[in-house]
Amino acid sequence: MEIATTSFSSVHGPGCSCPACSGLGTSSSRYAHTTPRRLSPGEELSAEDHAMVRELATTDRNVRAHEQAHLAAAGGLAMGGASFQMVTGQDGQRYAVAGEVRIDVSPAHSPEETIRKARIIQAAALAPVDPSGADRAIAAQARAMEQQAQAELAQQTPGQRQLGATYRVEEDTPSSVFQAAA
């Protein structure tokens, strides 16, 4: 079975409206072209270097919080932890300037399960304080998946719903219960 996945991502760049980027003229592309200069022993960072390090530290905190919000809401749908695009600041430290969380967005085995799953996907997509355009698009796709599953559920007869519920109980029951009953 192939699992469809998508990534919630936090990329700070042109058009980003987060507090770290708005008004500061910062972007991940700016960070990507920033190469820290090596300091001589005893040399301190310039005021400009300190400002860049502060911007990087703020962006790092925002990116990590954004991705952590996705992870916390995604629960078992997350396929691993967050991954980050890192840059090295003028102070020699590494900072996250973009990130993503991969999640399973494939439909479930039944309309009822798909509805539950789609709601979790929507919650995970919109969990950060500042969901990106991509996050909102994923939430909209999950909403469409939920509506499709609701339509499928509405078309089922009561007998089909009961049969589906029976099979789900058997799938959720550990095999040891069936072995003990035999």
Results as ranks from 00 to 15, higher is better:
Q122W: 03
G159N: 12
Q162D: 13
L163T: 10
Y167D: 13
Q147G: 07
E171A: 14
E171Y: 10
A151K: 03
A144N: 14
A124T: 01
A139S: 07
A127V: 01
M145A: 04
Q156L: 12
A134K: 07
A123Y: 01
A137P: 07
L153P: 12
Q141W: 07
A123F: 00
R168P: 06
I138L: 12
T166D: 11
I120E: 01
A124C: 03
Q150W: 05
D135M: 02
A127E: 02
A151E: 09
Y167G: 14
P158W: 02
Q147R: 12
P128C: 00
D130T: 11
Q150C: 10
A127Y: 01
A134T: 15
P128A: 03
Q141E: 15
G133I: 05
I138E: 07
A142G: 06
A154N: 08
R136I: 05
A137I: 08
T157H: 08
L163R: 15
Q122F: 01
Y167P: 11
A140C: 04
M145W: 03
G164E: 15
G159F: 12
G133S: 14
Q156P: 15
A125K: 00
A140T: 06
A125M: 03
A165W: 05
A144Q: 09
G159W: 09
A151Y: 00
G133Y: 04
A140Y: 03
Y167R: 14
A137G: 13
Q150T: 05
S132C: 08
D135W: 01
Q150D: 08
I138A: 05
D135P: 03
E171M: 10
Q148D: 12
R143P: 00
L153E: 12
Q122S: 10
V169F: 14
R161A: 04
V129Y: 02
S132Q: 12
D130E: 08
V169E: 09
T157K: 07
A125Y: 02
Q150K: 08
Q141T: 09
T166G: 10
M145T: 05
A154Q: 06
A149I: 07
Q156A: 10
T166Q: 13
E146C: 06
D135T: 02
A137H: 07
A151P: 06
A125H: 01
D130L: 12
Q160A: 09
Y167L: 15
Q155F: 09
A140I: 03
G159Q: 15
A137E: 14
Q122T: 12
A137W: 09
A123W: 00
G133T: 12
A165F: 07
P158S: 06
Q150A: 11
Q162E: 15
R143D: 03
A134R: 13
I120T: 15
A124S: 04
Q156G: 10
A151F: 02
V169M: 13
G164S: 15
Q155L: 12
Q122A: 13
